[in-house]
Amino acid sequence: METTAEWIRNVSGIEERRYAAEEETVAALAVKAGQDCLERCGAAPGEVGLLLVASGSAERRFPGPAASVAAALGCGETPALDVPLASAGSLFGLALGAQLCGAYGTVLVVAAEKMSTAVQFDAANRGTAMLFGDGAGAALLSAAGGVARVVSSVLHSDGAYAEDLRLEFGKPLEMNGRSVILQASRKVPRAIEEVLGAAGRTPAEIVCFLMHQANQHLIIRIAEALAVPPEKFFSNIHWYGNTSSASLLIAAREWSDARGFRAGEPVVFAAFGAGFHWGALLAEGC
């Protein structure tokens, strides 16, 4: 690609990104994240009552990766549902999974993306290609409790912008970056204020904001809109790039390792992506 590391860093904050091996599938990435999550939580695959797999870069029309991931994890005949939403997929998975815990007990939410197959590495497409990386993350939700509880969530979709960010089979990802940034910079802060307002919380009270890692400048812009220091927004985009739906759960895992939930402390999850789909979720340490 005809570009420089400095140019990429200046426009996105991205310094490195990870690419899966050619033979690795979205499902293979999802299985690794799912196994790691179950082991860390001390849960057996048989305990999973519902599996949700978010991905916008799955290799085929159907079946999506969810059923293969369930089989590889050893979840037996556990229902496995694909959430093909790209960047907002893991947030929707977490929000819906939390609602479904009452019916299914334990919900494993996995997000996996092989974005390296969604972009074209030529000079004409460098502005888009350099943003994305591959990755996977996972979270386990349980009616029995855990390190945090989901207090509430808000989810929104507006198909008026469906053409502004899309990936069609056999074609590279297409993005109207100006529209995406313009809408995200207004809709995400509004969603965060909406979920906090419903819980009687303010942005200043939030210990950490875990965002879909799309662009460092967007994260800063959202922090400014909420009048909170950007340091409150966990960021690892410099290391992974934009891994679409996976980025929120990768960020959550790394923040959890570095600091993690503490009793009573509020944490916000938020994402925005193709559709447009966006939303926010408020969690509180137990």
């Binding site: 426009v11 940034i181 313009l182 910079s185 207004r186 400048h217 812009r221």
Partner: peptide
């Protein structure tokens, strides 16, 4: 105007 100056302009 780049993508990030646009929201500020609005």
């Amino acid at each position: 105007l780049d993508s990030f100056a646009l929201p500020e302009l609005v």
